[in-house]
Design a protein around this nucleic acid. Sequence first.
DNA 1: TCGTATCTTATTGTATACAATTATGGTTCG
DNA 2: CGAACCATAATTGTATACAATAAGATACGA
Lengths: 224, 224
Amino acid sequence: MSRASDRAYSQIRRMILRADLVPGEQIREEQLAEVCGVSRTPVRDALRRLEAESLISRNESQRSFVAEWSLEDIAEAFQLRALLEGRAAKRAATRITAEQMRALKDCNCRIEAAIACDTPDIGAFLENNRIFHATIMEAAASVRLTNILTSIVEQPVVLRTALQYDRQNLLRSHNEHQALVAAFERCDGDWAESTMAAHIHRAFHAYADIHQRELTDAPCAAMA
Amino acid sequence: MSRASDRAYSQIRRMILRADLVPGEQIREEQLAEVCGVSRTPVRDALRRLEAESLISRNESQRSFVAEWSLEDIAEAFQLRALLEGRAAKRAATRITAEQMRALKDCNCRIEAAIACDTPDIGAFLENNRIFHATIMEAAASVRLTNILTSIVEQPVVLRTALQYDRQNLLRSHNEHQALVAAFERCDGDWAESTMAAHIHRAFHAYADIHQRELTDAPCAAMA
DNA sequence: TCGTATCTTATTGTATACAATTATGGTTCG
DNA sequence: CGAACCATAATTGTATACAATAAGATACGA
């Protein structure tokens, strides 16, 4: 991660994920080069990678923009994720090692701890949730599936959503993780697949609910 | 397609697909720049894109190689394709326009003609087959699904396989296409999905059979 | 002979200058 | 007043030189 293009990549990526660069905004190579303290060459390199991840898009004349996501786009991404991560869980069920199994359980313990108290530690929840899913991906042992899923999962709008999860959603998520572990322990691929798919679909509706509330609240906020 | 990086991209791509560059072979930016008649800058750009398509891979020290595919990798790619292109067919079933429907039927007619005579026109078969699947993708109207599928489908080893299809496989393929059209006509997404998945799975086994024969024949050829 | 340290060469990474293209604003003409 | 058109500015694309790094070769010592 010491190469200039790597630094540019992760810095630009972080700016998009943190919404410092807002969706629809045009991206100028030179400006980013200044911000990152490198020349345009590594920035161009980074932009190609971010384009492959759909974090930026280009118009017909090669100008770059922070990707905009409609609710439909997001629904589509969640559906794809449910399909593919379900498949990953199925593969994982018959390939997971004892070590990976332990890692999953540890993750869930840490998640349980993070959401136990009155003010849940969302940061810890998110990080352990990430590790949980990454471990399953690793157990699925499919480079291609991993690559595709990575490009689908890490979308700014989705990542920010979890910050607004209420306790009920956090608990449900935890329970679904427990069910996944149970499916793995019984090497039941079909159970794992459907549990994972359901897990992702529920996450989508949690997102949609929050989003809906945002849409509804927005006018009120504007009036206040 | 007039930009130097676009020309480099399609030229290198073609070289890989035609096996002028053999799997596992190291790729040198400067050499490709010479071949394509451009500087290293657009070549580097093209390589990033090809990397995103898994046509080239990089080792830990950033050297590029033509991607190598094990039989397991290929099986995995076909499985993913069956899953995703099945989903695309399902979406297409409820979204396809009259125009697209007509295009599909025309394609199938041309395919029928191409495989009717004693010496099938494999080139025409491949081209119309490509259009057929592309049309369904278009009807599915999902940018993300299209992108992912494109990166999975166009693998050199898979494309070359069809060149060795026997008449029976060509006919089966054609019949499956007809079934897909029928499913679309009835707007039956589930039927379309399972038919497409079966279509892809059959294609895999046709590939595997040919590959198996190659493996078996190879030693004999070496002895002759 | 083997391993290892060091030098040399090959290859990729970055910066910069300039070329090509696209957007923008203003001007003229109908 | 609007539309077509040009001039200019903004932005991206390409070539090239050089820097950094990794691979390969050679020499030396154990």
